Amino acid sequence: MTPEEKLAGLGLVLPEVVPPLAAYVPAVRSGNHVYTSGQLPMVDGKLAATGKVGAEVSAEEAYALARTCALNALAAVASVAGGLANVVRIVKVVGYVASAPDFTGHPQVVNGASELLAEVLGEAGKHARSAVGVAVLPLDAPVEVEVVAEVR
């Protein structure tokens, strides 16, 4: 199955690349690697949720938002790699979680992104990762994900 067929099996389609919110580009290819800018949980041009995880946003909601971030990251990668078929593997994922001071479930939230990448790309979607708690993210987003991919 192609990555697009796997997405369809999950009831998903690769979205349009989210336009930059400031002075940057969504993804850059350098040699055989693509580096994405941080991807927010944008759906149809709007932030899907705002607030802190563990306060206004539940861990379960944040997990789903991280999946959306990963889907947006795949769109950014595909846009400069000539499609998802050219992804050799996801090398690294960094997930940022804007959280309440007592929230400690950052790894489980970022699993939303990691698990989506593995579902779509199989073994090539498994990666090294960091899950980082932060005070606030752009637009008061609960989650942000960036990806480094090796491509053909």
Results as ranks from 00 to 15, higher is better:
Val110Phe: 07
Thr2Arg: 08
Asn86Pro: 03
Gly9Asp: 08
Ala76Gly: 11
Val88Tyr: 03
Pro15Trp: 11
Glu56Met: 09
Glu150Lys: 04
Lys46Cys: 01
Ala149Glu: 04
Asn111Trp: 06
Asp102Lys: 14
His33Tyr: 15
Val120Arg: 13
Gly112Arg: 05
Lys126Trp: 02
Val93Cys: 04
Thr36Arg: 13
Asp140Pro: 00
Ala22Leu: 12
Leu47Met: 07
Thr2Lys: 12
Ser114Met: 12
Val80Gly: 09
Gly31Tyr: 00
Ala48Ser: 13
Val147Ala: 08
Val109Cys: 12
Arg29His: 07
Ser30Thr: 09
Asp102Asn: 14
Ala55Val: 01
Val148Gln: 06
Val43Glu: 15
Tyr35Pro: 00
Arg89His: 10
Ala78Asn: 06
Gly38Glu: 14
Val18Lys: 09
Gly31Thr: 02
Arg129Phe: 14
Gly125Thr: 06
Ala124Asn: 00
Val13Gln: 09
Val88His: 06
Val143Gln: 10
Lys6Leu: 00
Arg129His: 05
Pro19Met: 12
Leu116Trp: 06
Glu146Val: 11
Arg129Asp: 08
Gln39Pro: 04
Glu123Cys: 00
Gly51His: 10
Tyr35Asp: 05
Val91His: 10
Arg152Ala: 15
Phe103His: 03
Val88Lys: 06
Ser58Glu: 01
Ala128Ser: 09
Val87Pro: 03
Ala70Glu: 02
Ala113Asn: 05
Ala64Asn: 11
Ala64Ser: 06
Gly133Asp: 10
Tyr96Asn: 13
Val43Ala: 12
Glu16Ser: 11
Ala131Gln: 03
Gly38Trp: 13
Glu144Lys: 15
Arg152His: 11
Gly105Ile: 02
Lys52Ser: 10
Gly54Trp: 04
Ser79Lys: 04
Leu116Ser: 05
Val147Ile: 15
Pro101Leu: 09
Val13Ala: 15
Val94Ala: 11
Leu21Phe: 13
Pro107Lys: 07
Ser37Gln: 12
